[in-house]
C-alpha cells in the first residue's frame, strides 16, 4: 500500500487519478506519449449497442476557462469495440479499465453492459445517463430519479462488476438522483458530466456548434462539480468519483476533501496530453505541503 492508494468499489487503485471518458479515446493515442499504466485507470470512450456517427461538425468550441463539445457519442458500437479496440487497449494498459456505456433505452444499456461485462480487463461499468448531446436517451435518464433508477436496475441485473452511475449537473436536485441510483443497486456515483451551454459565431451570427448546444467542461466547471460532489457525499454511502475541470494535484485533493474517493481528469487531457502524469507526479509533494499522510485520509474530510 502506497500513500496514493485508494479502493474504488472493491478494486485497489495505485492512485485516485483516472482519465475521463471521451477525452482519452481507448488509451493508445496517449500511450504514444507516456506509459498510461501510471494512471489509476481510465474510462474509455462511451460505447453504445449500435455504432453512432455522432453530430455534424463543428463539434467543438472555445469557452472562457474551458470548452464546449457536442460529439454525440460517436463510437463504432459495442461489438466492434470488443473486437477491435479492447485487444489493442490490452497491449498498452494492464490494469482494470472502466467501460463507459450509453444507450437510448434500458434494454440498450443492459445489452451493452452484459457484453462488456464478460470482458476480463473491464473492472467497472460507468453508466452514462448524462450525455447532453444526443436526442434520445442520454441526459433524459439522468434528470429524473425514476428513470435513473430504472437504468441502474437494468444494468445491475446483467453484471457482477461494480456499476457506477455517471450523473448530469443539469438538474435541480443532484442528491435525489444519486440516492435513487444507490437505492436501485449502484455501487458508485461519478459526477459531473458537462453543463449544457452554447456559443454564437459573430461572423455567421449563428450558433457555433452544429448541434446548437454542447457540454461545457474545463476549469470553468470545477467549483460546480465540487459543490455537487459535496452534496452527493452527504446523500449516499457509496463511493463517488469527482469529475469536472480538474487540472492540478491541488484540485484532486480538494475534490477528495469534498467526498470523492477517486477523480477523473477530462478536458485537461485535450489541451495537454501529459496532464494526468503531471498531476500524479505532483500529488506526493502536495500531500507533504498540506501535512497529509495518505491520500485516502482526505476522502470527505471537509464534512467532519
Amino acid at each position: 500500500m502506497g500513500r496514493l492508494n485508494v479502493n474504488l468499489c472493491g478494486i485497489e487503485l495505485d492512485n485516485p487519478v483516472l482519465a475521463a471518458s471521451g477525452t482519452f479515446g481507448y488509451g493508445y493515442e496517449f500511450a504514444e506519449c507516456y506509459d498510461i499504466n501510471l494512471l489509476g485507470s481510465f474510462s474509455f470512450k462511451g460505447t453504445t449497442r449500435d455504432g453512432r456517427r455522432g453530430n455534424p461538425l463543428p463539434r467543438i468550441a472555445e469557452a472562457p476557462s474551458g470548452m464546449l463539445n457536442a460529439i454525440g457519442l460517436q463510437n463504432p458500437g459495442v461489438d466492434e469495440v470488443i473486437r477491435n479496440e479492447l485487444p489493442k487497449l490490452r497491449e498498452v494498459f494492464h490494469k482494470p479499465v472502466m467501460a463507459n456505456i450509453g444507450g437510448q433505452s434500458a434494454l440498450d444499456y443492459a445489452e451493452t453492459a452484459e457484453k462488456l461485462s464478460r470482458e476480463e480487463q473491464i473492472g467497472w461499468l460507468e453508466v452514462n445517463i448524462s450525455c447532453p448531446n444526443v436526442r434520445c436517451g442520454g441526459m433524459s435518464f439522468g434528470t429524473d430519479p425514476k428513470a435513473a433508477a430504472e437504468i441502474t436496475r437494468a444494468v445491475r441485473a446483467v453484471t457482477d462488476k461494480p456499476v457506477i452511475m455517471k450523473l448530469t449537473p443539469n438538474v435541480t436536485d443532484i442528491a435525489a438522483i444519486a440516492r435513487a441510483c444507490e437505492d436501485a443497486g449502484a455501487d458508485g456515483i461519478s459526477l459531473i458530466n458537462t453543463l449544457l451551454g452554447m456559443r454564437i459565431d459573430l461572423n455567421t451570427k449563428k450558433p457555433l456548434l452544429a448541434n446548437t448546444t454542447g457540454g461545457l467542461s474545463g476549469p470553468a466547471v470545477f467549483p460546480v462539480a465540487l459543490r455537487m460532489v459535496w452534496q452527493v457525499y452527504e446523500a449516499v454511502r457509496i463511493p463517488i468519483i469527482g469529475i469536472g475541470g480538474i487540472d492540478s494535484a491541488e484540485n484532486v485533493c480538494e475534490m477528495m476533501l469534498a467526498g470523492a474517493t477517486a477523480v477523473q481528469v477530462g478536458a485537461a487531457n485535450l489541451r495537454d496530453p501529459l496532464a494526468c502524469p503531471k498531476i500524479i507526479a505532483d500529488l506526493p509533494e502536495v500531500l507533504d505541503r498540506y501535512g497529509v499522510k495518505n491520500i485516502a485520509d482526505l476522502i470527505g474530510k471537509a464534512h467532519e
Partner: peptide, 17 residues
C-alpha cells in the same frame, strides 16, 4: 481545415464520414 479539440485523436471532435 476544421475546428479541433485535442488535435491528436482523443476527443472525436473533428470526425468526418
Amino acid at each position: 481545415d476544421v475546428r479541433m479539440g485535442c488535435g491528436f485523436g482523443a476527443c472525436m471532435g473533428c470526425s468526418r464520414a
